[in-house]
Design a protein around this nucleic acid. Structure first.
Lengths: 233, 233
DNA sequence: GCAAATCTTTGATCGAGATCAATGAAGGCC
DNA sequence: GGCCTTCATTGATCTCGATCAAAGATTTGC
């Protein structure tokens, strides 16, 4: 298990300015709450303040709860990433562990107050948020205009960029999320996701090993099936 | 027509720090490009750098172009708002005027370099981006998990918050966007949007006047039809 | 190593929304 | 002010993905 100072140091390296005073550094550390979240456990923020989350290691999903039994996965986040959980408005949000995780959580408003005059930190947060926004917009496009087949292809390509291991032309994926998670992220059902994966398997575009392993054999084919404007090389 | 210094001043008031030096102020001004965009005209950024847009007045849509004839409206933006247009990646983006607009555009990277040590400006941008992210996530939930009826209700409620005129219990909307725009924003077709509006009209929840006027008569009913977790008051 | 529980795959049917088609209403232009 | 173009509405049919149902894999626990 990662110890608290260790997890915080990894956060500090990524987000805090290297020339931050020790005193300021300690104030940020005092604000952090370390959470060890076991697989399938989730963190609810009934309290209404927006949170900032740092994923030390592990993999998480950010879930929005619409009316009962209708959850939408808003984003996946992996080790080293920072993201913000909105305060509860029309929906309630929770962060759930796909694998055992170590997280650091900060109340967003307190954090921003502490960082009010730290341009470097704000810049890091801005870059992170802009990245989240870009991914969220791409998801919007997929959910608004793409077929089931295209969404699954887009998902596999996105995962290949984020957690794929390249190996002589093919990409190995060890997916931390279940078919249900994929479906809830893509606005589809488990059955549809499974059928689309089967089609890709039959077309020899992918191979699957067990529940979580996927080999992307034909990246070109996959891109062609993602419904992108132009097949970027 | 708004003159350039005037449009920039309105931007400066919203985003730049009041205690910014005159020299810095001028450097930002030099970076700004003023664009008067007529209704239905759009601004393409084939060039690959991300842009920062300030809407002086008017109304705009941010459109992502997926494969031909499949556009998804990613966001609407109205007078006084700032937003970022991502650089072209898997999709190309354009900003299109719903009404005559005056815009200020900045290359995002140059702007951020200028603002590198201006915590106040970065904070404004961060707040704006976080707001965009929140709205984008809500759209994701709608597109992923909501029925056509719910999406249209959500849309009307969101517009009522942003550009509605309250009048003794009812809200008057003068929509700057067409049915096509609404459909492209909600991941539906024109026909479905029109049918849902007709249903709301028959249920006396809304009234429509001409093409763009809508009166929200029963806000409670509308909220109940939006599929929110709990009917917030 | 076997049994139980869970997750995934496959098949059959159904339905919400898309598509195709036509009519009706607004607004623009001469 | 009337014609014409464009946009919105309404109707009929079709389709993709959801739902319902069952069988097959994979993992877990003893």
């Amino acid at each position: 298990m990662t110890s608290f100072p260790e997890a915080f140091e990894s956060f500090a390296l990524k987000i805090l300015s290297p020339d931050l005073s020790d005193a300021a550094h300690l104030r940020f550390q005092a604000l952090a709450r370390q959470v060890a979240l076991e697989k399938d456990r989730s963190l609810d923020f009934d309290g209404n303040s927006s949170q900032l989350i740092f994923v030390g290691h592990g993999a998480t999903k950010l879930v929005a709860h619409a009316s009962e039994a209708r959850d939408q996965i808003v984003a996946f986040h992996f080790g080293g990433e920072v993201f913000s959980v909105p305060e509860q408005d029309n929906y309630s949000y929770s962060v759930c562990a796909l694998r055992d995780c170590s997280l650091l959580t900060f109340p967003a408003d307190d954090f921003l107050n502490l960082a009010a005059s730290e341009a470097g930190i704000l810049r890091h947060l801005l870059d992170n948020t802009t990245g989240s926004l870009r991914r969220c917009r791409e998801k919007t496009i997929a959910l608004g205009r793409k077929t089931a087949a295209e969404r699954v292809a887009v998902f596999l390509l996105a995962m290949s960029e984020r957690i794929g291991m390249e190996q002589d032309g093919t990409v190995l994926l060890e997916l931390p999320m279940s078919r249900r998670d994929i479906a809830e992220s893509l606005g589809l059902t488990i059955e549809t996701v499974s059928r689309q994966l089967s089609l890709l398997r039959e077309a020899h575009v992918i191979e699957t090993t067990g529940r979580s392993g996927i080999v992307l054999r034909e990246m070109g084919m996959l891109k062609a099936r993602a419904g992108y404007l132009r097949d970027a090389a």
